[in-house]
């Protein structure tokens, strides 16, 4: 290999190292808030106020056990899980079926409905929230699990139908026709043949809706309200902050445990989440 060529190579790789060093530095900066939370979550309040940056002199793990009981963490975790899981399952079920019918039977009604779904995606939550409280109170959908699930169904449908719609358009009809000839009912065709083919977009729909519902705050506040039997993690943390202002030792322990479930989920399913978000945003 000739010398100048080697030099070019070296120049390139040293530039790459420079880029890498810079990126790592920035990544550390990105992570620093988590460092502050973790380090201070095991300090006494006095120590936090004196020095919030260094490692604790004495590790106070009882911050965690205290706040675990105060915000009743297991209960909040369970409700977040319950509400998210049921709502997402409902959204997948209902929106895939609706999208399938809209693609396969593009009647004037179904086309208009699809247009309504798309148009409704621009409505901000704040523009319907007050009237929603009114309507859900009338229908006795406030303060119970069914109510919050129906709300998520209503708000989650539009994007999910659009995503399923885009995917189903590309599914060939021949397989379905063959199944019909073999005597399969229309419902059987959908469940046994079409739905399994929708797997990639189903993963996207699950991920986008899970991240949204898990972290959502204002809708549960309005719909669950004061019913403590349904408190989710964001509600529990907010309530805690209202009662224990400036008690940073407990607050940070509470925050650390509250962000853990979703971070663990993200690290486990990272590849799917990143792919899901990419395809969701390009098609949506």
């Amino acid at each position: 290999m000739s010398k100048p060529h080697a030099n070019v190579r070296e120049g390139r790789s040293s530039r790459l190292i420079g880029v890498e060093a810079l990126a790592i530095l920035l990544a550390l900066l990105f992570l620093s808030p988590f460092y502050f939370v973790l380090v201070n979550s095991v300090k006494s309040l006095g120590e936090i106020l004196v020095d919030a940056a260094s490692l604790p002199q004495k590790y106070l793990f009882e911050n965690y056990s205290k706040v675990w009981d105060i915000i009743r963490f297991p209960r909040a975790l369970w409700h977040s899980f319950e509400i998210t899981a049921i709502s997402v399952a409902g959204i997948v079920l209902v929106s895939s079926m609706a999208a399938y019918r809209i693609v396969r039977r593009p009647t004037r009604f179904n086309k208009a409905l699809f247009f309504c779904f798309i148009a409704s995606m621009t409505i901000p939550f704040q523009s319907v929230m007050l009237q929603l409280v009114r309507v859900t109170s009338l229908l006795e959908l406030r303060g119970n699990l069914l109510g919050i699930v129906v709300c998520y169904l209503g708000f989650g449908l539009a994007l999910s139908v659009v995503l399923f719609h885009g995917f189903i358009k590309g599914v060939p009809m021949e397989i379905e026709e063959a199944a019909v000839v073999d005597g399969c009912s229309p419902y059987g065709v959908f469940w046994r043949i079409v739905f399994p083919l929708l797997r990639p977009i189903t993963v996207t729909v699950i991920i986008l809706n899970t991240l949204w519902i898990w972290n959502d705050y204002l809708l549960p506040v309005l719909i669950i309200g004061s019913n403590k039997a349904l408190t989710t993690i964001p509600l529990a943390v907010t309530r805690f902050f209202g009662q224990y202002t400036k008690q940073w030792d407990l607050a940070l322990a509470g925050l650390a445990m509250s962000v853990t479930p979703i971070i663990v989920l993200f690290l486990l399913l990272q590849k799917h989440i990143v792919e899901g978000i990419t395809s969701g945003s390009i098609k949506g």
Binding site: S95, A98, L113, C116, Q131, L132, V150, C151, L153, G154
Partner: peptide, 16 residues
């Protein structure tokens, strides 16, 4: 196929 979605959408988004 469409009924449940239409119902939820109407109650939660359209009517409000």
């Amino acid at each position: 196929f469409v009924g449940p979605g239409l119902l939820a959408f109407a109650i939660i988004v359209l009517v409000p």
